[in-house]
Amino acid sequence: MTAAARLAALDSLPADELCRMAESALSALVDVMNQETTLLRAGHMRQANALTPEKTRLAQDYVGFARSIQRQSLRLSTEAPGAIERLRLGHESLATQMAENLRVLATARMVTEDLLTDVAKIVGQQNKAKTYGRGGAITTDSATSARGIAINRAL
């Protein structure tokens, strides 16, 4: 089936059915994003990462339905106004969940960067020469601090 045929098939669905399918995809997307956010908060990065393919598929499905609904907005607003209102509320729920998800992702990234910076500093301190300078104090030479750190991303 061509893309144009799929779009035509979506656009020709009865109003209630199209809205029900969009609501279902939206609800599933909000649910998987909530699961991901919960896992990220708990520090279970691998488990959260495992949800990515499902989240991507659900997002693609929802975007396809949303675009069809936009194309058919006049027809749907007269044939299924209640369903359109439920979708609007569901979309607000998605926006809230996405904002929370992005906030948790930003926090996880910041924590990771802080940890890596701290590790690099500690490794650099271990490599510093411990000699006395002219004033009788141990000198600190920033040139001898850690210049980099290797990370195994396969974990």
Rank of each mutant, 00 (worst) to 15 (best):
M1F: 15
M1Y: 14
A3P: 00
A3F: 10
R6K: 11
A8Q: 09
A9N: 03
P14E: 15
D16G: 05
C19L: 11
C19D: 02
R20W: 08
M21R: 15
A25S: 09
A25E: 04
A25F: 01
L26I: 05
S27I: 01
L29E: 11
L29S: 04
L29I: 07
D31W: 05
V32Q: 04
M33Q: 14
L39W: 03
A42Y: 06
A42Q: 12
A42T: 01
G43Q: 03
G43C: 02
H44P: 00
M45V: 14
A48V: 04
N49P: 00
A50T: 09
T52P: 00
K55Y: 08
R57H: 07
D61Q: 15
D61P: 00
V63Q: 15
G64F: 01
G64Y: 06
A66P: 01
S68K: 03
S68T: 09
Q70E: 15
R71I: 03
S73K: 13
S73E: 12
L74R: 12
R75H: 11
R75P: 01
E79F: 02
P81T: 02
G82A: 14
G82M: 09
A83Y: 01
E85S: 05
E85P: 00
R86T: 10
L87P: 01
L89C: 09
L89Y: 07
H91W: 12
E92N: 01
S93P: 00
S93R: 10
A95E: 15
T96I: 06
Q97T: 13
Q97Y: 07
M98D: 14
A99K: 10
E100G: 00
V104G: 02
A106Q: 15
T107R: 08
M110L: 13
V111W: 04
V111R: 02
V111A: 10
E113N: 04
D114T: 09
T117L: 10
T117M: 09
D118V: 06
A120M: 12
G124Y: 05
G124N: 07
Q126W: 06
K128D: 03
K130H: 01
R134L: 11
G135D: 15
A137M: 11
T139P: 00
T139Y: 00
S145M: 12
A146M: 06
G148N: 11
I149L: 14
I149E: 03
R153S: 06
R153K: 08
A154R: 15
A154K: 13
L155I: 15
L155P: 03
